[in-house]
């Protein structure tokens, strides 16, 4: 039973990792990378490591995604100005 869940999570993680690298849209790629971390945190919970699961869920999927999106918005903002400016 547990093994099936682990296999499904593992396949989803690999698929999300591939998506993150080959997605055209950068923000979608960042979200996919966050999904890899979120699935990893579920795996940590199944591996009886709840401390690591909490850290990964809070840092890996939440804060890292936010930092990536902030960086993306800065890399977009300097080149093309908002047309309404």
């Amino acid at each position: 039973m547990n093994i099936f869940i682990v296999i499904i999570l593992g396949v989803l993680m690999l698929a999300a990792a591939g998506t993150a690298l080959y997605m055209k849209s950068l923000s979608a790629a960042v979200i996919a990378a966050g999904a890899v971390s979120l699935l990893a945190s579920v795996l940590y919970l199944l591996l009886a490591a709840p401390d690591v699961a909490m850290t990964e869920a809070a840092i890996g999927s939440a804060l890292t995604t936010v930092v990536f999106l902030y960086a993306l918005s800065r890399m977009r903002g300097t080149k093309k100005e908002d047309p309404r400016d």
């Binding site: 709840p50 401390d51 699961a53 909490m54 850290t55 809070a58 840092i59 939440a62 804060l63 936010v66």
Partner: peptide
């Protein structure tokens, strides 16, 4: 319980976020 300084610190940072 599971958790501690690192996790709590991150949760506080997300609150300010």
């Amino acid at each position: 319980t599971p958790g501690g300084g690192f996790q709590g610190g991150v949760v506080i940072a997300t609150g300010f976020l």
